[in-house]
């Protein structure tokens, strides 16, 4: 009963992953960096007939994904992308991880070397609540999204939506699609204005390609 499986997977999949899944074309070759237990991979393989592969830094999650029959390797964005050949994938996905990698700029470059398209989601540091807390209290912001103390957060490279646009411009990446969303992954109505999205969007999702 493939239909019930798909419903089950989709229901349990993070909402931002559903938004990502919408961007993937059927039958595509996909690499999901930071794939966790492989919920998105499984969905893409079942629902889109994708050749879906993953990289996961957490060994327990990677083992769960492999035990589910998925093509997942234990590894990380900073160290493992360099070993893939050029244009090996149609889509390379990095969800909610860019802010935690050691070299975000190099990771993006590698993603667009090995993939035709890169799909990147990240929490937006430009959100009004973050700005307000920093401005008003003079302390590092603590919100639903940014919820770990500065001394223990894995998020070492936070950026805003406008920062990300600027990096894409500088490194010659074409923004094919973008959207801002709230924490529940619901699309937000600031579709036309990066300035407004940067103020009100908690999460950002970009689809990029090389120039």
């Amino acid at each position: 009963m493939p239909d019930t499986t798909i419903q089950y997977v989709a229901k349990n999949m993070r909402v931002d992953l559903r938004l990502i899944a919408e961007m993937i074309t059927p039958g595509a070759r996909v690499l999901d960096i930071g794939c966790g237990d492989g919920a998105l991979l499984e969905y893409l393989a079942l629902a889109k007939g994708a050749d879906a592969r993953g990289i996961e830094i957490d060994m327990a999650e990677a083992t769960r994904a492999v035990a589910a029959g998925l093509a997942v390797i234990h590894g990380d964005a900073d160290n493992d992308l360099a070993f893939y050949p050029d244009a090996a994938f149609d889509f390379v996905i990095l969800s909610r991880t860019l802010q935690a990698v050691e070299k975000p700029r190099e990771v993006l470059r590698q993603m667009l070397r090995i993939g035709q398209h890169a799909i990147v989601s990240f929490p937006n540091f430009g959100h009004w609540a973050v700005r307000w807390q920093l401005a008003w209290t003079g302390r590092m912001p603590m919100t639903n999204t940014w919820n770990r103390g500065w001394y223990e957060t894995p998020n070492i490279h936070p950026c805003t939506i406008r920062d990300f646009f600027e990096l894409c411009e500088r490194d010659g990446f074409v923004v094919e699609e973008w959207l801002a969303a709230d924490d529940d992954g619901l699309k937000s109505p600031w579709r036309r204005s990066a300035w407004l999205a940067n103020l009100f969007g908690e999460q950002a999702l970009f689809k990029l390609r090389r120039k």
Binding site: R53, T63, V66, I73, H74, G75, D80, F83
Partner: peptide, 18 residues
């Protein structure tokens, strides 16, 4: 081994068991 397989665009799973 895994990196060589990735370079060959092979479908590979890899885990290091604790």
């Amino acid at each position: 081994l895994v990196r060589a397989m990735n370079a060959a665009a092979a479908r590979v799973s890899f885990v290091e068991i604790k």
